[in-house]
Design a protein around this nucleic acid. Structure first.
Lengths: 209, 209
DNA sequence: ATACAATATGACCAGACGGTCATGTGACCG
DNA sequence: CGGTCACATGACCGTCTGGTCATATTGTAT
């Protein structure tokens, strides 16, 4: 977390630093991201960044936290507009749609968090240790609820079903960030993809083998 | 590709170098992998590695090619044991099962190729330029055949269906390499996962909406 | 004007990296 | 013995990195 000095800074300067840090960590993996480059572009001295943050990792965690907060808030608002006790697949569709909207508005934030998934395993573990596994836990809760309410076919192994859904929704972030799927085609395409998941996972008349 | 000097080397020395290079590129992303570390562990001089390969990228491409050859051969043999004109989902199951077996026998090779998927987009493009997109092209062919033979539900958008299958099978490599799925649980777990895909994508009596 | 604290600075450090090259070694051949 | 050629070597180069710290500047309250 930033040192008090950083929080005392005029907002414009603070924003400039944060924006450039986001850009740097969005464009490069953690190891390749360069503090020297950030301070140079921000027009501040090398030493100054160490008055604001303990070290490179501290700065990284700060901007990552910002991105996570933003995304959580975004999805939270979208879900709030849904009624109480919403359907699993509706929940999914709304979160995915919100994520795509966020990706359109703040592509750097998306790239930033997508990059985390590409980091070496030990680094990810270190980061996740500071965060909780919020997303994973929430998702598991959704799955349990869906299963209990008969929105997931009880004839299918629920862990495997959860794996499929989680993997697909996670791939969305990666593919959006890397440009393999554009933000323009994403909504329609992902609606189709989610329809397929729903088609395969919802209970049907004739039970599964 | 290696210089002639490398190919003239006694096989033991060649193997030692290749093994250590595989290990290095399996343990670290391209940028983090260190030639200095490889030569130190191999007990050869820094200059020697440049008598064998043009540069770091050349060495990388060489070991990557080895890994790809190995995997292609492995899957090819498994598929050959299938009859002619095999079913799409059977083909999938057999390839996945072969990949898991390979992962068990040669975990470093798996990590090596899994790491490629985590590289920055420009680097991946550079690598893929030297290779062809063999895997992607083959998979697309499988999908087309499956669709033509009525093994994929014609009521579903085929691109989205292909995306789901491709994403899931790709995730297998990542999750195996990172240890999120162990080689012991992988066969059973992935059989379930593939069953779910088949259950959702095969044509059924009642047509999809 | 003075004193004191908060903030800013950039030269500097040690370490790592990929890559080079002049020099050395040794095996084979006439 | 001498010559030739493939191969081996490691000191060295330029460049970059995260991080430090003594010093200078600024702001503020008296």
């Amino acid at each position: 977390m930033p040192k008090p000095t950083f929080l005392n800074l005029p907002e414009a300067k603070r924003r400039r630093i944060v924006d450039l840090a986001v850009e740097e960590f969005a464009a490069h993996a953690y190891r390749e991201a360069s503090l020297t480059r950030i301070v140079r572009r921000a027009g501040i001295a090398k030493g100054s960044i160490y008055q604001y943050f303990a070290d490179k990792f501290d700065l990284y965690m700060y901007v990552l936290q910002l991105a996570a907060d933003r995304k959580l808030q975004y999805i939270g608002e979208a879900l709030a507009r849904l009624g109480p006790d919403p359907d699993f697949f509706e929940t999914l569709a709304v979160s995915v749609e919100a994520s795509i909207r966020l990706a359109r508005e703040e592509p750097r934030l998306l790239e930033l968090s997508a990059n985390l998934l590409r980091e070496p395993e030990d680094f990810r573990a270190r980061v996740m240790g500071h965060f909780g596994h919020v997303a994973e836990a929430t998702f598991q809760q959704w799955v349990s609820r869906a299963f209990a309410r008969g929105q997931l076919d009880p004839n299918l192994p629920v862990e495997a079903a959860a794996y499929v859904v989680w993997t697909i929704t996670t791939a969305l972030g990666q593919d959006l960030a890397s440009g393999r799927v554009t933000v323009d085609e994403a909504p329609g395409f992902y609606r189709e993809v989610l329809k397929i998941l729903e088609h395969g996972l919802r209970p049907r008349e004739r039970p599964a083998p």
